[in-house]
């Protein structure tokens, strides 16, 4: 199976929320905290469900998202 993760540069995120709309699984949310500019930043709210599809990064106007993806051989058991 394919597993993925994103890392958000929270200091550069402007909180536009376009990534939350682009995520096919709806697993990106906006933080309650704000960064030093006062923006709520995006974060992966359900980190064990990301497939690294890149959709969030593609629409991000500030390119603050780095996407990781890898293949794992054995289908691992669901966490919940």
């Amino acid at each position: 199976m394919i597993v993925g993760a994103i890392v958000v540069d929270t200091e550069r995120c402007k909180g536009c929320e376009l990534c939350t709309q682009a995520c096919p699984f709806g697993i990106i949310s906006m933080s309650e905290d704000v960064n030093s500019k006062g923006y709520h930043y995006a974060y992966l709210a359900d980190p064990y469900a990301c497939t690294g599809c890149e959709n969030c990064a593609l629409v991000c106007p500030d390119t603050v998202i780095t996407v990781y993806r890898m293949k794992v051989e054995e289908p691992s058991k669901a966490k919940n």
Binding site: V3, F25, A49, G52, M70, S76, K79
Partner: peptide, 11 residues
């Protein structure tokens, strides 16, 4: 959504 249990630091 499908969950996995791979530690994030491995990804």
């Amino acid at each position: 959504v499908k969950h996995h249990n791979i530690p994030l630091d491995q990804i």
